[in-house]
Amino acid sequence: MLWPVLRALSIGELTDDQLTWVRETFGLTDGPRTEGPAAEDSLAHRTLTDEHGVELILDLAGLDDDAWVFTLFRTTAENPSAVSVEGWRAAFRAAIDHLNLELVEIQPAATADEVLLAYSEPTYTPESAFRAHWAFPDELDLLWPHLGLLRDAPRKVKQVKLRDLMLTPAWDLAPASLHQQAKEFLDGN
Score class of each variant (00 low, 15 high):
Leu2Asn: 10
Ile106Tyr: 03
Leu99Glu: 12
Gln181Arg: 08
Tyr124Leu: 13
Ala95Asp: 03
Gln107Tyr: 15
Leu6Val: 02
Pro32Asn: 09
Pro108His: 04
Trp171Gln: 09
Leu99Asp: 07
His146Val: 01
Arg46His: 08
Val83Pro: 00
Ala176Asn: 03
Gly36Phe: 11
His146Ser: 15
Asn189Leu: 10
Pro145Trp: 13
Leu101Arg: 02
Arg7Asn: 04
Leu6Arg: 04
Val104Thr: 11
Ala110Tyr: 02
Leu178Arg: 13
Met166Lys: 11
Ile57Asp: 00
Ala44Ser: 14
Thr168Glu: 13
Trp134Pro: 00
Arg151Glu: 00
Phe26Gly: 01
Gly148Pro: 08
Pro37Ala: 06
Pro145Arg: 14
His45Ala: 08
Ala95Arg: 05
Thr34Ile: 15
Asp30Phe: 03
Thr76Ser: 15
Leu48Tyr: 08
Val69Pro: 00
Phe70Ile: 05
Asp164Pro: 04
Glu51Ser: 06
Gln159Asn: 06
Leu60Phe: 05
Glu86Asp: 15
Asn100Val: 06
Gln180Asn: 09
Ser177Asn: 02
Glu139Thr: 10
Ile11Phe: 07
Gly36His: 10
Gly188Val: 01
Leu9Lys: 10
Asp66Met: 09
Ala39Trp: 11
Met166Ser: 08
Ser120Arg: 14
Leu28Ala: 05
Ser120Phe: 04
Met1Val: 09
His98Gln: 15
